[in-house]
Each structure stands twice: as C-alpha cells, then as structure tokens.
Design a binder for these strands. Structure first.
Length: 553
RNA sequence: GCCACCUUAGCUCAGUUGGUUAGAGCGCCGCUUUCGUAAAGCGGAGGCCCCGAGUUCGACUCUCGGAGGUGGCUCCA
C-alpha cells in the first residue's frame, strides 16, 4: 500500500495490487467500509521510533520509503491503528472513532493510475478516489454540483451549440472551428485588440515555421526539443513549427537600432503555435496541440517597465471584468534551489522579481497575494491571474511576464540618452493566453448562454405561419443591416417547434411575427430566460439591442 | 507517455451469453399540415457494429495489436 491523504471534499488511497480494480469493485468496497464504520472501531495513534516503524512495516516497501523520507526531514513518525485490525503510517487527526463517520455521506467516486510520489520514473499504483461529508445532504449537494458541471462541459456544449469539432483524420488536439465558433473567436480577439489599441500596441505578422537556430538562441531547443513539431526540408535543413512567438517578435524588434526615444515598441499577433503534447494530456479545448495565442511583447527600457506592466494589468482587468470573472493573483517566482531549471544568473532574476513585486504591491497591496516559488517561466518571473467562474472553479488565465533573459540572449539593446547601449526589458503580455482554452472556460462559465454581444446568433426571427414569412424575412434583413446577427427560421415546422429550437440553441432573442405584428409593423419579443416580453417596433428594438451589445452585458 | 475504462446511424443510446435480414428516439429527406410562444402526422434514406490481425464451420460479440475518446498520473515555454 502506498499513501492516502485527504483532499478537498474527500480522500484517495494508492494501492499496489496484482489485479486491476474495476469500477464495479467500488460499490463492493463501499459496502465493506460501511460494515467497518458500523463496528464503532477506535482510531488510536501513537508516536513511533524509526526502528519500531521499520519493523512494523517491514513488508511494505512504500511505507519504508516514506519512513526514509520522513527521517531525512526529521519528522516525528506516528502510527494510527483502526481497532486492532489495521495499522498505518499516518499523520492522523481524521477521526477518533469510526462512529464519527456518516456511513451515508461518503462515496468512492473513481479510479486512476498514479505514480509513486508523483514521479514518472516510479512504479504506477492504483488510486481510489472518494468524497466524504458530514451529512448526506452535503454529499447530495456536492454530487449535484458535479452533475451541473458535467451538463455545462464545453466538449458537450461545443457539439450541441455547433461551435467546434474534431476529426480523426486531422488528429487529436487539433480542433476545427465551425462558423459559429469562429464568430466567437473573432469577437474575443477583436475585444482584446480594442483594449490593446488604447495602449499603443501594433499588429505584426509572423510565419508559423522557423529554422531551429532561432530556438537554439532562445534556449527553447534544449529545454523543449521533444515537444516541438519538427520538419526536415528536402535540402536537409531542420525547421520547427513555432511553439511560441517571443523569438519572432524579438527578431522584428532586432531589425534595426533603437533610440530611447523610440521605446517602448509594442508588438502583438493573434497567431497559432504548435506543441506536441503527450496524447494523454489532451482534453477538449483546454489542452490542445494547435493553440491560438493573443500574444504581445513590449520592448522597453527599465524606467518604463513599471508603467508598461501596469497597462497590461489594466487590459487584463477590463477584459475579464466584462465577463464577470473575478481575478485572483499569484506572483510566480524562481526557485533558487533549482537554478538549472532557469536561464540566466540570479542577479537578473532578482531585478525582474523586484519590479514585478512593486507592481503587484501597488495594485493590490503588500502581502495580499500569493507568491509561488518555482512557478516562474524558465526565462523570467510572472504575474498569473486566476479567474473564478460561475461555479466557483479557478482557472489560470492571463499572465504578465517580465523577461530579462531573452533580450540578453538575443543581445537586444537601445541607445540611451548618454549615447551608450543599455539592455532592453521585455514584457510578455497575453490576455486570453490560449483562445481555445479561454473559450472552453467561457462556455462552461455561461453554460453556453453567452451574453448578447458574444452570441453567434443574436436574434432568431420566426413567422407564425408561412403567410408571414416574407415579413419575417424583412425583419431579419433590417436587423442584419444594423450589424445584428439575425437568422430567419424556416417556415415548415410548427411554431412551438421552432421556438424550442431557438431556446435549446440558447439564442438571446426570438422574434415572433404574425398578423398583428405585420399590421402594426412591430415584432413580438421573447427573451432568453424571461419568455414573452411584449411587442415593440423594429427600430426601437434595434436601438436597445445595440445598446446591450455595446455595454457587453 | 503511463494506469484504468470506453468506441454500434450525423447525435444520444438499446442489442446480440459466438449464429444467417442490426434496433429506437432525435436529426436529415419527401409528402400532408400553415400553426400565436419549448417537440404536428405519415413515409423514406442512412451502419466496414473504430481499424488490423488471430481463434472459430461462423466474430459486431472472444484474444492480441493499433487508432480515437474519458477519468487520473506525469508534463505544460
């Protein structure tokens, strides 16, 4: 047996068994656990010496391994006993007696493989996951939430709402976007652009393949060689599909000498990158092999770094605010104990980390955010933003990274006001990060019911019967002429059926027109989630829709 | 990549304990219906039962290999 800690809402335990467990085994195990709970077994703990623990667990190699680690960390060993049937090396503190456990408020949820101590080089054990609560009601609430999350799974909604698809011929992790999905992607990208424009970003365009020399200089080749899609040309040269954009933006910057008067230069591209992710890591749109990044890099001098970082901060907050996604912040720093994981010397890192901390302190206050050692990118520290969605789940979204290493490796400098050369500071500033991943988050956040400005179809026009189809067509055309994404429903189904269709497709507004509307030159409006909200003229409807779209609500 | 599970029509899923013609609902197509706020009626088309090999008189079903997916682990510039 391996290890079995508590986790949020439950626990897991790893086993090394000859036979594999199957999902059918879980109810049997649950039954046995319930029997044990009902026996009112005492859970007693005691301190153990290294020698006595080694003796007690002499047949359990995983426990002996743990004992070795704990001794090295100078931890006090404790052994907990369940009745007099089972002893385990355990931190304890869960319960004193099994009668404290509610036999109706736990459930073994799923099975998984897990490496011993999380190391790919170690043996793989079978992990049993479970959840436990103090009352049955709490467990049912939790299971209901899980069910809710399943219902809004972006992979399911992506198909139902016809947003994207995958093809076995194209390959895993390579999503294909339908017309509706592409409308969404473009709207999100346009929104980011509208925010960037205010801060002087300029669009640049770069190729998708490149000589490997670029990545040898950047340091990516040695670090990520196995995750690159590589291409050999007929002339024997080796190219790679770009796995990131910084080196290309750097080469645009490096085209000429810059004066301090020209800085900052701010380059941005919405462009795809390609990473050969391991098959088992792929998941819907969250983890893919072709990733669209809304990537930007700012090249500036040290003096202007802080204000440029703050500008990115503003863009990030304005962007996520529009979706009602509150942000939490994490400062991701270098782990000084593992210097070989990072580029460059410690001094550069210290400087970069100091500047980022100042920005974070000024924006949200000293000590009011989490610092994560070892979470930095290999070329620089970063500010990571976590968005909290409507189900309370946390997603890592935007990052602001300060990079002194890449400019150094590529020898980026500018002529300062004294006429000598100074080093360039570089800021990596992706707002969505990956459009695919952000779209997945949005689909689940809204459960597919996008706000009006994002809805691929904003208005569905339905004629009560075929007699009014031409009037309905005129309404749809008027809306389209006002840049509203309106669709006309075919007339050959019943009214109820067509309304249902619009509702299941989560169209924000459905307009219904018949004799009365045609006579009065009006439309009957049905709003998603509200039902029939009355009749209005087409011109006042267009006005109010445009207002709603502009407000992005 | 590793462990476990899954793959039947465009979608959701039945089914065959190895047996000859493979089923439903939705969707699609046709006809009828022209309708006032969440599913009209009738008819039709649609399947290499994921792919390859093996076992067998016979494989959608069993075995092995592969692909794709799901839950985890590992990784994530």
């Amino acid at each position: 047996m391996g290890i079995g800690p508590t986790i949020e809402n439950g626990f897991y335990y790893d086993f090394d068994l000859k036979e594999s467990l199957t999902p059918e085994d879980l109810p049997k195990l649950e039954k046995r656990i319930r029997e044990l709970i009902r026996q009112d077994l005492k859970m007693t703990g005691s301190k153990a010496t290294t020698a006595s623990a080694r003796k007690l667990f002499k047949d359990q190699p995983y426990k002996l391994d743990l004992i070795k680690d704990f001794v090295k960390e100078k931890k006090q060993l404790t052994v907990y006993k369940l009745g007099d049937m089972f002893s385990d090396l355990c931190k304890g503190g869960h319960v004193k007696n099994t009668k404290e456990i509610n036999p109706d408020a736990f459930k073994l949820t799923h099975l998984a493989g897990a490496y011993w101590k999380g190391d790919e080089g170690n043996a793989q054990l079978q992990r049993v996951y479970g959840v436990a609560f103090s009352s049955k009601t709490d467990m049912e609430k939790y299971l209901w939430q899980q069910e809710e999350a399943r219902k809004r799974d972006h992979r399911k909604l992506g198909q139902e709402l016809d947003l994207f698809t995958f093809s076995e011929l194209v390959g895993p992790g390579l999503p294909l976007f339908t017309p509706k999905g592409t409308v969404l992607r473009d709207l999100l990208d346009d929104f980011v652009w509208s925010l960037r424009k205010k801060y002087g970003y300029q669009r640049v365009d770069i190729p998708h393949i490149t000589k490997k020399d670029l990545y040898e200089t950047s340091g990516h080749w040695s670090k990520f060689k196995s995750e690159l899609f590589r291409i050999n040309t007929r002339e024997g040269h080796e190219f790679a599909l770009k796995p990131m954009n910084c080196p290309h933006h750097i080469q645009i910057f490096a085209r000429r000498k810059w004066s301090f008067r020209d800085l900052p230069q701010r380059y941005a591209s919405t462009t795809k990158i390609y990473r050969d992710e391991q098959a088992g890591e792929l998941s819907g749109l969250v983890r893919v092999r072709s990733i669209t990044q809304d990537d930007a890099h700012v090249f500036c001098d040290m003096a202007r770094t802080e204000s440029e970082l703050k500008n990115v901060w503003e863009i990030v907050h304005e962007f996520y605010g529009a979706f009602n996604l509150p942000l939490k912040l994490r400062l991701s720093l270098r782990d000084p104990k593992q210097p070989d994981k990072y580029l460059g010397d410690g001094k550069l890192w210290k400087d970069a980390e100091a500047i980022l901390s100042v920005v974070a302190d000024k924006k949200i206050g000293k000590g009011k955010y989490e610092c994560a050692l070892g979470e930095a990118a290999f070329y620089g520290p970063k500010i990571d933003f976590m968005a909290i969605d409507s189900l309370g789940r946390e997603w890592q979204v935007a990052t602001i990274q300060l990079d002194l290493n890449m400019p150094k490796r590529f020898g980026l400098t500018f002529t300062n006001d004294k006429g000598s050369q100074s080093q360039i500071f570089m800021i990596h500033a992706a707002i969505m990060g990956s459009i695919e991943r952000f779209l997945a988050i949005l689909i689940e956040h809204y459960a597919g019911a996008f706000p009006l400005w994002l809805s691929p179809v904003q208005v569905q026009v339905i004629a009560v019967s075929e007699k009014f189809q031409s009037y309905a067509e005129k309404i749809a055309k008027d809306l389209q002429a006002a840049d509203i994404r309106a669709e006309l429903a075919e007339a050959n189904e019943t009214l109820g059926k067509r309304i249902r269709e619009g509702e299941t497709q989560k169209v924000p507004y459905i307009l219904i027109v018949g004799e009365k509307e045609k006579q009065a030159d009006t439309v009957a409006v049905r709003k998603r989630g509200k039902g029939d909200i009355g009749t209005t003229t087409i011109s006042s409807l267009i006005k109010s829709l445009q207002e709603e779209i502009t407000k992005r609500k």
